[in-house]
Amino acid sequence: MAGPPTENTDPTGNDAQRRRRRDCLVVSLAVGVIGVTFGVFAEAAGFDLPRIVVMSALVFTGASQFAAVGVLDDGGSGGAAVGSALLLATRNALYGPVVRKTLPDSTLPRLGAAHFVIDETTAMAVAQPDRRSAWDAFWFTGVTLWLCWNLGSLAGAALGAVLSTPETWGLDAAFPAIFVALLATHLRTPAGRVAAISAAAIALGAVPFTAAGVPILLAVAAVLPALYVRHRRPSDSEEPLGGESGAQP
């Protein structure tokens, strides 16, 4: 998808769509495997099947679900579990401004789509060259990821510890690698590079001292040096909202 968008010629459009959806599916399937480990984890922590299924379907924010179950498993209170989970979920609110333009304009579909505003859908949408393909990537990732996550949770809860250690399979490296691929487009401008490097430094510095979820929120301060760089080099501000042409994946 590196070339200029030639969406109007049918073969190219179909081809681009097929490739786009294949990438979305890769992400969703990886999330599905994590869903299995969530199911196993929650089951081991004493959650029954209905509660696991309802949680995955309705909360639908992986990191938060792991955090909530983990806190309860360690003997934490319900309030502490909800607190740490919501802290992790707060970044989804920050994705809102990013994907807002991509979502449908009318209220009801927009409120429905909001449920699917998470790391992966935002990343796949923002990686697309135009609004139409961004919406396609968003809903396709959203739906397949929701299905994979829930089927995974169900399978994990029902089958038990078949895949209890995702580390054995290197799955914990899969997600950062996916986001490296999706970050790549945003590194094309000086401001983007400054933003990414500053954010990484802030997050790294904050990890040992703050609760889970907080480092990513603190990293938002990285927009300040990036805005400064962009201000110094105005040519850079041409960058379209939500990243420029085709992320490489």
Partner: peptide, 26 residues
């Protein structure tokens, strides 16, 4: 102008946390 920088910031922070963090430690 801030919005177009948010993906770079959030994904980059997400990457380092997912790569280097285990149970609150680097």
């Amino acid at each position: 102008p801030l919005v177009s920088l948010l993906p770079a910031v959030l994904f980059s922070a997400l990457i380092v946390v997912m790569t280097f963090e285990t149970a609150g430690e680097l």
